[in-house]
Design a protein around this nucleic acid. Structure first.
Lengths: 114, 114
DNA sequence: AGCGCTATTGCGACCGCATTGCATTAACGT
DNA sequence: ACGTTAATGCAATGCGGTCGCAATAGCGCT
């Protein structure tokens, strides 16, 4: 299952993951997938991200990732920027809120859809 | 129902809204709540926001709002900053992605919980 | 006022994702 | 080989949200 997660550049929903895993090793139960996913999340190997159509999973990166969701074609792009780190600092200073995870979702039109 | 939404500073889940509305006017159906919520969303009066425990609804503001979710006490704070607008500009320039909605969720420890 | 049309509401069934409890199986140390 | 423990499978359940359809309210028209 770990291989499935790694071999897929983009994020998948739990259902998709279960399907892919079954392609490789049929007879793997949904529960196992969910449980393993939860385990990985606890270990910090994967990250849960909330999307309109449910929870998606992706490999965890050290720094925060911005999800760009194209409302036309549905594609999800990643973007990485120091701006998020700046935002973190700002929150700490202005609201004395100590962030430990930050999640940015932007919906709009991607490069090829506008 | 509009009153319920307005009278509640923070965001509510659809279930909560249904409950509150029923306190005022018992015998209002779930479907009606969902339908009205969808209508309001279409009119741009309310905004849908994804939280760990499901979809929450809140009054729409002109500019993007950052949700600060305290993992200790569960409180949800708002934060408004030009940084988000900067981020928008940045996305447009770097990825030629035209954003029409931006949603930032930060989890961490709030002022009174650290 | 009485009639008929239309939009809204209520209601129950339903759907799909996720979770849980429990039995089964596999793994491993002794 | 045996017993203990953790991982897995499986079926039932929970729950948030949606759908189809019947009942009802609102409203203009004559």
């Amino acid at each position: 299952m770990w291989r499935v997660l790694q071999s897929h550049p983009e994020h998948l929903s739990a259902g998709d993951i279960a399907d892919r895993v079954r392609q490789v090793d049929p007879g793997v139960n949904r529960s196992s997938v969910y449980r393993t996913l939860a385990l990985f999340a606890e270990l910090g190997l994967v990250r849960e991200s909330l999307m309109e159509d449910g929870v998606h999973w992706e490999e965890a990166h050290a720094d925060a990732v911005i999800h760009l969701v194209c409302t036309r074609c549905g594609k999800v792009l990643h973007h990485r920027t120091p701006t998020v780190a700046a935002l973190e600092r700002e929150l700490h200073e202005a609201d004395s809120f100590r962030p430990d995870a930050i999640d940015v979702r932007v919906s709009g039109a991607c490069h090829s859809c506008q």
